[in-house]
Each structure stands twice: as C-alpha cells, then as structure tokens.
Design a protein around this nucleic acid. Structure first.
Lengths: 224, 224
DNA sequence: GCCGGTCTTCACGCGTTCTTCGCGCCGTCG
DNA sequence: CGACGGCGCGAAGAACGCGTGAAGACCGGC
C-alpha cells in the first residue's frame, strides 16, 4: 500500500485529505507543523509527501530543503492562490509539484498518481529460484549450475508465462494464446514439444519433472 | 544544453516561449500540431516536452500516450483554465505536470527546472569498464587501449542503450525503438549492420564476441 | 559543386529454430 | 478387457534469423 504523509495545520483540509486518500486505499499519516512533519518524514518513510506551505512554525521552503537533504521522496506542495514567487521558490527548493488552493480532489489525486508513477520507474521483476535453476525475469535469463541456459525465443516465452504465474495452473489455451497469439488455441501439440525441450534443459530428470508439472487435460504448472 | 520541444498551435504563445526559453539557454524546437509534434519528438529527442492540449488535429491525451509509448521524457501540459477533468485525464495519460493558461513565465520556468531535475537522477555509475574497453555514459565517449574510439551517432546510441542495461537482455524491438524511434520496430536488419560495426570497433575478435552477445531471435546483451 | 562520412538497403551463405508427423505409453471409462 | 484420448518423444523438412560485404542515397562542411 502506498504511504502518504500530509503536513498541514488546517484541520478541515487535513481531515478532507485523510478521508479521501484513505478511501482510495492510501495509507495516510499526518502532521500539523513543520518540525513534527520532518520528524514524521524520517519515522514513517512515506512514498509521497503532501506539504502545505502555510505552516505556523517554519517557512515551507525550509521544510522542503530539510527533506531534500536526505530523501528524494516526491513532494507535492499545497498553497493559497496567488503567491507566484512562493511557487517558484518551492519548486526550486526541490518540490515536485504545486497545487493551489482551493483545489479539486480529483486533480490532487491525479497529481499524486503522477508523482508515485514517476518515483517508481522500476516495476520490480523478481528472480525466481529453485533448487536446480534460477529464472531472472528482468534480465530474461535462466541460470543453471552457474551457467547460462540457452533458450530459444519460444522456449523463453513459455517459461516466462509459467514463471509469472508460478504455483498457479496455466491453461493450455492461455499458454497458447500468450506465446503463439490468438488463432493457435487448438495446437496443443506445440505445448508438448516445447515443454519437452524446457524439461530437457532445466529438469534434473526430464522424464520425472519436479518443477514443470503437467496437469492432464487442463494445463501446466510451474512449482519453484 | 537542455533541449525543449514545444507543441502548440498558437503562434503568440509559441513565440513567447521560444524567446523566453532561448534567453534562459534552453535549446528550443517547435511544432504546431500533434502529428508533426510526435515526429519532432522522435527526431529531436528533447529533454522535456511542453505540450498544449488544444491542438487542431489530435486530442492532447492521445499525443501524450503516443509519446509515452516509447519514451519517458518529462511532459508539461499547457491548457486553458478550468477543464478539471481534462487535467486529470492528461496526468493519468502520463503527463508529469500541468499548467493552466494564463501562466506566469516564472512559474513555467520553475516547473521546467523541476521536471528536468527529476528526470536526471544520475547518481549511478556512469562508467562501465571491461577488460578491453571503457564506456563513459556521462562523457559520451568510449576508450580502448588508452585511445578514444570514434563512434557514429547511431553506433553510440546503440551502445548506450546496451550499456545502461548491462547484463540484461535488450529486445530487438526495444533497441530499435530507443535508437531509431517508434515506427522502426521491424527493421531488424539495421541492428545487424550496426552491431557488426560496434564489434569491429570494440571486440578483440569481432567474429567471436565476448561483450556484445547475440541471443538469437530475442535480442542482444552487453556483458561487461 | 565537390567530398568525406554516415545511413539505408540488398543478396548470399549458414546455422538454428519452428512446425509437423508418427509411434508408443498410460490412465480413464465404457 | 478393450477402446480411446491425452501425453511424451524423436525425427525431418521448411522457414527463419544472423553475420557479412558492398553499393547506393543522403547530408553537412568546405
């Protein structure tokens, strides 16, 4: 779940944000002034910071600089209308975005999504490991006993689909659809040929598969 | 110098932006409609895109999607006041920021700086070394046996993409897209020609590559 | 207008991969 | 007990992908 920290001294805004963000499945924590905001920032490690510039104890740009000193968490600034120069100062201090009050909740949510999306360019592609080999989805590579295993394009695609659905049953139709595309839904023969190839290259005993399992009449399952 | 592409159909705005940005030492190119804008995007490869949503030929969000299909260049959207839903749609389509007209030039410049700053995190290792040559991503140069290797622009771009994805498989499509732009996804012949050139210039034995590896039917991998 | 460098396009040869087929095994079901 | 469908396996021709050299098109500088 995505964690958001809101620093604002106006209770109504704080409440409105908390309700709306929580409803959208964000995890929300709050702070009412700059000092406790910075403390919360270090403690909570949120994924995004929403910061009101009109705080009682500190200048908003100092809060931004305080955060930027050690973190690159996206910062969305809220502030009253006008104040062009304040806006520029906040952005130059390291804020990522700036929204003027009064603001539409839809807009804020959209900017929030944009900020989160930018911050996480890495759609983490895990490495799946078994006792006999490893499958690296990001590097599109299979290693066995320390050495790379050479897979043909079709073999890799099949393994990739199975690995992404590890432990789940993958239907024959699904497999054919994802590897060969539509129009091959009845070519179940292909699956046997390539499953045999994969097992030859990956299984310790290809005739008694431990990882690439057949579920007769239904499909295949990859059990790491 | 930072390259900015402005897509806008209103001549006065285009002129104002061009003058102001040029004065701030940005390199500015322009386009007056969506289609030529997308073409310019692929051709110029700017560091930031400033996009007006009110284009004559295409819907603004479609332009955004057209760019996001192959590039993560920051996009700042300009648009008339109001239009809350348009704003949300643009941000969700992949825009990074949104400025409503009329806007202050200072604000736009600040948002531009913020976008550029975000886009270049660059805290990572910009120099990749192998036993036979060195690739300096930041300095855009390749050294072999102490001497600079002369690469053509296309050769460098290819090497850069491979080096940034060192040890990872880079798909043919991905490579074509990042070097030639969208619309070249099927020109796999180019890859062979330029890969041969790179190997001739970098590999100790070009016919038995050690670093620039082919994975038949899948793509290429740079192994430092 | 010429010239050097760069990009695009093409054809050939070779090795790999895909597709297709037949055979035999096994479990299920009538 | 026998028929049948689904599966594993091996083999063979066709199709495809890659590396290579070379020629023409294009472009910018002089």
């Amino acid at each position: 779940m995505i964690k958001v920290l809101v620093i604002d001294d106006e209770a109504p805004i704080l409440r409105a944000l908390k309700i709306n963000l929580t409803a959208r499945k964000y995890e929300v924590s709050t702070a009412a002034d700059g000092a406790s905001g910075l403390a919360a920032m270090a403690r909570e490690r949120p994924d995004v910071l929403i910061l009101d510039l009109g705080l009682p104890d500190m200048d908003g740009t100092d809060v931004i600089r305080g955060v930027r000193g050690w973190s690159s968490t996206p910062i969305i600034v809220l502030s009253a209308w006008g104040q062009e120069s304040q806006k520029v100062a906040a952005l130059d201090a390291g804020a990522d975005d700036y929204v003027t009050k009064p603001f539409g909740m839809d807009e804020l949510l959209a900017r929030l999504r944009a900020a989160v999306r930018r911050a996480s360019p890495a759609p983490d592609e895990p490495v799946i490991t078994t006792a006999d080999f490893t499958v690296d989805l990001a590097g599109k590579r299979v290693t066995r006993a320390g050495a790379d295993v050479r897979l043909t394009p079709t073999e890799w695609q099949m393994l990739e689909v199975l690995a992404r659905n590890a432990d789940k049953l993958v239907t024959q139709r699904q497999l054919l659809q994802e590897v060969w595309g539509p129009g091959y839904q009845n070519e179940a023969g292909y699956l046997r040929v390539y499953m045999a190839n994969l097992r030859r290259k990956l299984e310790p005993d290809p005739s008694a598969p431990r990882y690439l399992l057949t579920e007769p009449g239904r499909g295949y399952r990859f059990r790491p």
